[in-house]
Design a binder for these strands. Sequence first.
DNA 1: GGGCATTCGGTTGCACACAATTAAATTGGG
DNA 2: CCCAATTTAATTGTGTGCAACCGAATGCCC
Lengths: 165, 165
Amino acid sequence: MGMTTEVEPTAVPEEDLLRLDTQICFSLHAASRAFNSVYRVLLKDLGLTYPQYLVMLVLWEHGETPVKELGARLRLDSGTLSPLLKRLEAVGCIVRERSSRDERSVVVRPTPEGTALRERAVRIPPRIMAASGCTVDELRDLHSRLARLTAALDAAARQGAPEPR
Amino acid sequence: MGMTTEVEPTAVPEEDLLRLDTQICFSLHAASRAFNSVYRVLLKDLGLTYPQYLVMLVLWEHGETPVKELGARLRLDSGTLSPLLKRLEAVGCIVRERSSRDERSVVVRPTPEGTALRERAVRIPPRIMAASGCTVDELRDLHSRLARLTAALDAAARQGAPEPR
DNA sequence: GGGCATTCGGTTGCACACAATTAAATTGGG
DNA sequence: CCCAATTTAATTGTGTGCAACCGAATGCCC
């Protein structure tokens, strides 16, 4: 829709909207990097990066998983996953092998060492909660808010026309 | 006190905490990338990336700014800012020049073209709001939550390593 | 004036993130 | 059975993000 000035009954001036955008834009970016930074410190012990940890979380919960499904779950494409999985394989956390059923497909499986990492990973969540100063319930609330927001943004990205709710 | 089972009065099992971590961890990562993705589409018109837009927002609001201050405001170090500013200079949005007062310092100034971009940038915030399905108030709320969270995470990160002072 | 730590920006190396392209394997139609 | 479209990973190129290091400029101290 091509409306420019009085889209809303609240009629927030453009200047203020741009200033608000500065804040939202930055705070989300900053929050993501701050979380990343805290995880980075905790994950150093495990020899994992933050995205690598995401992959291991999926493998710990669901066992061996095709690359395709990893990409779908984490919303990462092969351009990101391929080198990441190679590094995980290089440090011995996973093995990759082509499926015999479908030679196009590559299945990712945690090694015993990769599985063993889980024992040490269980110490991370309590530390994250401590660092965030949030309770379990607050984090659950944040999760649901962010999930809703992401769903809305994804929907909007797929189609130029925004469809609220 | 016991480190393993009774960290909290609620006594959430480790398994559930790891699963919750999966969700929080992923949802924040995903939300950040989803926002990034929506901005990317809108910013394509302006020829800016998301972090470049963050820099321009600061320049539009505060005028010429030393690299040092840009880094402080956006919490980005020179390793990220240097190449980013070079690209902004290459496309003619900014100029960089060393301060005559202190030859170590570089001041970043928007060019007339860079300043003119602001006219087109004011269209972005309403679209972001539409895509997010949030009201101005909800976004303000999100901003304050994320800012609090980031502050807590930053503080926790500082505790591990002592400050350079 | 001569050292010396500090400050500031830049560079390098590594790891995502994503768009676009490529290559191999599979499937379906004739 | 052969060919064309499709699926699936991998590769390439660009742009962050950050740690570690470098070199020039500055300030401070004797």
